[in-house]
Amino acid sequence: MTITAAMVKELRELTGAGVMACKKALVETDGDQEAAIEILRKKGEATAVKKSGRIAAEGVVFTAVKDGKAAIVEVNSETDFVAKNEKFQTFVSNVANQILDSDAADIDAFMAEPWALDTTKTVKDELVSQIAVIGENMNIRRFKKIESDGVLASYIHAGGKIGVLVDADAPANDTVVAAIKTVAMQIAAMSPQYVSREDISDEELAKMREITIDSALNDVSSLPKPIQKDIFAEAFASDALNAEDKAVLEEKQNDKYLFNFLSKEAIAALAAIAMSKKEAIMANKIFNGLVEGRISKQLKEVCLLDQTYVMAADGKQTVKAYLAEVSKEVGATVALKSFVRFETGEGIEKKEEDFAAEVAKQMK
């Protein structure tokens, strides 16, 4: 069957997929539009078959805190314009407040429970109604709930682009609440993954170490000089490098800019030699010191208590030291128990297409 431009145009309007993707799908299905749509869906190309099929990667994060309970939820929309819409914001607020009193353990259970403001319908029914009224696909993507007998604090950044909940074991007074609020701001800005090093499992630490070791070995230019010399010696004794690179290596092996003169192939060959000597290099004390230093640096980035406090007057004080200071001021221990950080659209692939540009490109 001949695939016409009109058929491609119609399929493109139905799905939002690219010109060539639509044409290829129609060719594969011999012009069967429904089958072509199915192919595009499977390949992730279809973006507008219906409102509920469109990518909703914008939206807001909202928090609610009440009576020792806190909830954080992310609700997505297709555009930032709708995310700022008053109806959308009200709906998200209502969702967050319902989560506070909900026993639902996951999204599916939450979507099936009665809508608190109209129990004749479910949360899912209300979402569908809002999609019809607002005119864009929307999605209650995820939520988290915390119950605590300590101090709960929340922080919303950039109108809902980032939301944070923090749970602390501490006395509830104005000084502590203010301090935990600033820690929530820290979490929003610096995106830690753990409260402290103790929260990292042995498996995760082992994986971090393995990645750090392999990364170091694959960057021979960063290795200690004694180790480099061993790698260079093996390179000279083998055919891993061509004659030109061997000449460069022999002439400039003590030059700090050596790797600027070597070919990409030579650099890759040296990395391969380093990886082949991995076990022996790992026994080297200097190399182990390098690895430990890099791991320590990573831990300071991913562990909240190890991070430099963003409001530190000296630019050096850690979050742990700041909380110790607050503890001393209030005469009681202020300890962080957990936190939750949601960032709108994180992990969702945003697909941007320009139909006119696509057509122009295909016409060349």
Rank of each mutant, 00 (worst) to 15 (best):
L290M: 15
L290D: 12
E292L: 06
E292C: 03
G293D: 07
G293R: 02
G293V: 14
G293Y: 00
G293M: 04
R294H: 07
R294I: 10
R294A: 02
I295K: 11
I295L: 08
I295Y: 03
S296Q: 11
S296H: 10
Q298Y: 07
K300P: 00
K300H: 07
E301Y: 10
E301H: 06
E301W: 11
V302S: 04
C303G: 01
L304F: 00
L304A: 02
L304M: 10
L304P: 01
L305E: 09
D306T: 09
D306N: 10
D306R: 13
Q307V: 13
Q307I: 14
Q307T: 14
T308W: 06
T308Q: 09
T308I: 13
V310L: 12
M311H: 07
A312S: 03
A312V: 15
A312N: 01
A312G: 01
A313D: 13
A313R: 09
D314T: 11
D314W: 07
K316A: 05
K316T: 14
K316I: 15
K316C: 04
Q317L: 12
Q317K: 15
Q317C: 02
Q317I: 12
T318E: 06
K320P: 04
K320F: 00
A321N: 06
A321I: 11
A321P: 00
A321V: 14
A321Q: 07
Y322P: 00
Y322E: 01
Y322F: 09
L323H: 05
A324Q: 05
A324C: 06
E325N: 09
E325G: 07
K328D: 12
K328P: 07
E329H: 11
E329Y: 04
V330T: 13
V330C: 01
G331T: 06
G331Y: 03
G331L: 02
A332W: 03
A332Q: 12
A332S: 12
T333A: 15
T333N: 12
T333K: 14
V334M: 06
V334T: 12
A335T: 13
L336Q: 10
L336E: 07
K337M: 08
K337F: 07
S338W: 03
F339A: 02
F339V: 12
R341V: 11
R341N: 11
F342C: 09
E343I: 15
E343W: 05
E343P: 00
T344N: 14
T344P: 09
T344A: 03
